[in-house]
């Protein structure tokens, strides 16, 4: 592959170096301290969930509340994993989010390319239709879409869960705007070399679009991973549920077990949090750039 030179070139880069250096002042220290306090407060629910998950079930409802487990144990995790549901949901979430992300990238890139770099009959009308589609939130379609799915026989199938999530006209729009800004000279040169549209897309446009593709991919993946409403409707079979749907609907036969609930919550939260810690900057950009719809 022609090495894409497109690194994340932050437009703020110019200002970064010359921002006023924080001097150690009383005011600065106060800002730091309040920031840290707020951050810690914001983490309390997560920390409390982790601590609860490490307690034996009997300790979870102790009054008054005690933070640290008296006898820390991984029993809750063992019980949750022994049920096997959560592993299956994690697999389902991974498969479905990946399929949604890849398909979204493929169909939206193709469509955006067509709108940006080609002229075909009906182009304007179609683009206007897709723009109008941005106005239709998926939430208002749940009932007719479910009805349609029963007709097509897609309820309780992977495709039934995944395909409606691929229809994201806003992504076509974002990608088109980006492609529009790629100078014509590049495609002209390629065309002179005898390249057709597929070649131009593959060898000219895509290599220059790394950042936007990453942004769309990350945003789509995160959104699909955490999507609740549609998977909740399209998958009633526990074997097909994703993490949020499974955790939100399947009950333990033994009633509410707080340590196990929290263990399941921690395990369900882990994948994206790990991805976030590893790729913090990319996730932040992906979410802010593509998320502004």
């Amino acid at each position: 592959m022609s090495a894409p030179t497109a690194t994340l070139r932050p437009s703020r880069g110019a200002t970064e170096g010359s921002r006023p250096r924080p001097r150690i002042t009383a005011g600065g220290a106060m800002v730091t301290v309040s920031a840290l306090v707020l951050a810690v407060v914001w983490l309390i629910p997560l920390v409390w969930a982790v601590l609860t998950s490490l307690k034996p079930e009997g300790e979870t409802t102790a009054v008054p509340i005690r933070w640290l487990p008296l006898e820390p144990t991984l029993e809750a995790y063992r019980l949750v994993l022994a049920r096997g549901d959560l592993q299956r949901w994690l697999v389902n979430s991974t498969v479905i989010s990946t399929v949604v992300t890849v398909l979204t990238l493929m169909v939206c890139v193709l469509a955006a390319y067509a709108f940006s770099k080609t002229r075909f009959p009906g182009r304007r009308a179609l683009f206007a239709l897709f723009l109008a589609g941005i106005l239709v939130p998926p939430q208002v379609l749940i009932v007719p879409l479910f009805d349609e799915m029963t007709f097509l026989g897609l309820v309780d199938t992977y495709w039934g869960v995944a395909l409606p999530q691929v229809v994201a006209p806003v992504m076509v729009f974002i990608l088109k705007r980006f492609f529009d800004a790629i100078p014509r000279d590049y495609e002209e040169a390629a065309r002179l070399d005898g390249a057709g549209h597929p070649r131009i897309l593959w060898s000219v446009v895509l290599p220059m679009s790394g950042p936007i593709l990453a942004a769309v991919a990350i945003f789509t993946f995160v959104q699909s991973w955490n999507n609740f409403l549609w998977p909740f409707i399209a998958a009633t079979d526990p074997a097909l549920m994703t993490v949020p749907v499974g955790l939100g609907s399947v009950q333990g036969a033994y009633g509410i077990q707080y340590a196990q609930n929290m263990a399941a919550a921690v395990l369900g939260a882990l994948p994206l949090l790990v991805v976030f810690l590893l790729f913090q900057r990319q996730v932040v950009r992906g979410v802010t750039d593509a998320g502004l719809k």
Binding site: T7, V95, V99
Partner: peptide, 20 residues
Amino acid sequence: APAIGRRGFLAGALTAAGIG
């Protein structure tokens, strides 16, 4: 994270998609 991380991530995602 270096740029490789991002590409590695995407490559991984694509592989996983194939399997999926």
